[in-house]
Design a protein around this nucleic acid. Structure first.
Lengths: 234, 234
DNA sequence: TATCTTTTTTGACATAAGTCAAGGATATCA
DNA sequence: TGATATCCTTGACTTATGTCAAAAAAGATA
């Protein structure tokens, strides 16, 4: 793959899936992986279509989502750099269960299904990393199902904000890096509802919303909302 | 493990996770696996507790569920014979993300975490089977999230019934093997709502409900309901 | 069979959240 | 910079589904 080989190698070893692999395995990978680029909004795969492999995102972000009959979208997750896309289907040999669109200009490495089987034979440890990845995602979905069915929208929002806050070292301020419409979809609701809830929490001095920047003024209140002790209703 | 050894061996090879393993591996497993029994209603593990291994269900059924702050339960899945219980947490090294209770007298094989790492070194192919298992469950959750957020309760019920019908060779008749209250929880709703919807579908001759036996009189209508074309509202 | 418990059904009611529609605010691009 | 498209907000309204309470039905126990 000429010029880009070294890029690949350094890139490859920084991918969790390939952590700790010996040099020969990395070289093998370098020959297998195929670089692909997607524009903002471009579709990467479609629900129901057969999977021929999976992607490792290098740069950019991809939203994986389902569509209702009326076209309402529910984002399942957002896949960012160094994460896997479409691995479950590729592995299980099932069609893709959801859509995937690039949210911005995205660079990814495509890993063809056939080559994967070969790699596993030569380097079984990869599978361990992959299992960890699947396990993590399962836990994410478990929490999501929990949220969707047991919490009301303000609770899901509060959980999301507190979670985001923790991720970013938690300076009491969260910068949401997706549109509010997309956030609504991620929370399993619609923009109008999200907007109203942000307003109410703002009025009650639980949050301070400035565009995409949200300050968590009262984390205790947020935790209470998650637990159904809703001081915001009134 | 004396007398039960051969039981184990025949049992073990019939577990998808251990399909196709050579004799020595099976013997190794026989020494590792620990038989455990649970009574109806007995708790097997609790949300938040540390996992020390996972179970392979031999007989009986286990419900895995989350609890809301007010005690409302959402069943995530029901684990039956030959399936894995708690594998994700055991593997990811995280605490259990949900509760698990035996729904009836249940026999299971416990697989301690430490021994698992050893097995993988000796028999990496097990991991492949395990990944397939995780992948399948991920797809199940994907569908579940889809249902919970994009479909209304009648749609979820319809999807459930049609799915069950397909599973059982589909003689147009489904015998639900859990209580209606539990089914409500599985569908992310409450018994009252489920009862009302069953009533309505009965009145409209889409279903015929006799206790736990449900006949699908009009599958086309059920499919329409899933797609939001709801002939039952009126 | 009779008694007790649990599950299911029904009714009246409350409410969270969705729909529809329109006006502002922001971003994007020439 | 101005023009155009997208995103966000707000209001009025509807509705699916949850809550509470009580009766009916079905199972379990003695």
């Amino acid at each position: 793959m000429g010029k880009k080989s070294t890029d690949h190698l350094s890139g490859i070893s920084s991918i969790p899936l390939f952590h700790g692999l010996p040099e020969p395995a990395l070289n093998l990978l370098d020959n297998i992986l195929e670089e692909r680029e997607f524009l903002r909004g471009e579709n990467i795969f479609t629900e129901g279509s057969r999977s021929t492999g999976f992607y490792i995102i290098v740069k950019g972000r991809v939203k994986v989502f389902k569509l209702s009959a009326e076209g309402k979208e529910q984002i399942l997750h957002i896949v960012g750099a160094k994460e896997l896309l479409g691995a479950v289907s590729a592995f299980a040999g099932n069609p893709y269960p959801a859509f995937a669109d690039a949210m911005e200009k995205t660079k990814a490495l495509f890993f063809p299904q056939n080559d994967f089987l070969e790699l596993i034979r030569k380097e079984p440890s990869v599978v361990m990393n992959m299992m960890a990845n699947l396990a993590m995602r399962l836990q994410h979905f478990t929490r999501m199902i929990d949220d969707l069915s047991l919490k009301e929208v303000p609770g899901r929002l509060a959980a999301y904000l507190l979670y985001m806050c923790e991720q970013n070292g938690c300076s009491d301020s969260v910068e949401i890096d997706i549109s509010k419409g997309q956030l609504a979809s991620l929370l399993g609701t619609i923009p109008e509802t999200l907007s109203r809830i942000l307003r109410k929490l703002s009025d009650n001095r639980v949050l301070e919303v400035k565009g995409k920047k949200i300050r968590l003024m009262n984390k205790k209140a947020l935790r209470d909302i998650i637990n159904g002790i809703d001081r915001v209703k009134s």
